[in-house]
């Protein structure tokens, strides 16, 4: 296929649009950052408060999962266009790995 390099000059309207988008994105990033710090605080608090291990472990695992998703979507731009297939394969892989680990933990090592 012929790949012609295309030089594109932005119009004023486009410029405004891109600027607004970037600002939105920045706000999203900051908000996510705040949430992530908050989640981390919760994690530390549960340990510091000396709850039962059976409570702490699932809570921390859950928080970790949320952190991963936030990280992927807000900082690694997985929410962007054209990432559907990537997401699909990532989650399929995680799903398979999860089932495997779950089975090993429950029926071999328990």
């Amino acid at each position: 296929m012929a790949h012609d390099a295309h030089v594109h000059v932005r119009s004023q309207a486009e410029f405004e649009y891109v600027k607004k988008k970037r600002a939105d994105e920045m706000r999203g990033n900051l908000a996510t950052f705040a949430i992530m710090i908050f989640l981390t605080l919760i994690a530390f608090t549960t340990v510091a408060a000396g709850f039962s291990v059976y409570l702490i472990v699932p809570i921390i695992l859950l928080l970790a999962a949320i952190q991963v998703v936030l990280q992927l979507y807000y900082f690694m731009h997985m929410s962007g266009k054209g990432h559907g297939m990537v997401a699909f394969f990532m989650f399929s892989g995680m799903f398979v790995a999860f089932i495997t680990v779950l089975t090993f933990v429950t029926i071999i090592w328990w």
Binding site: S92, F95, V96, I99
Partner: peptide, 9 residues
């Protein structure tokens, strides 16, 4: 394809 990974046992 998905089910294929949930049945090995």
């Amino acid at each position: 394809g998905f089910y294929g990974f949930m049945v090995w046992a």
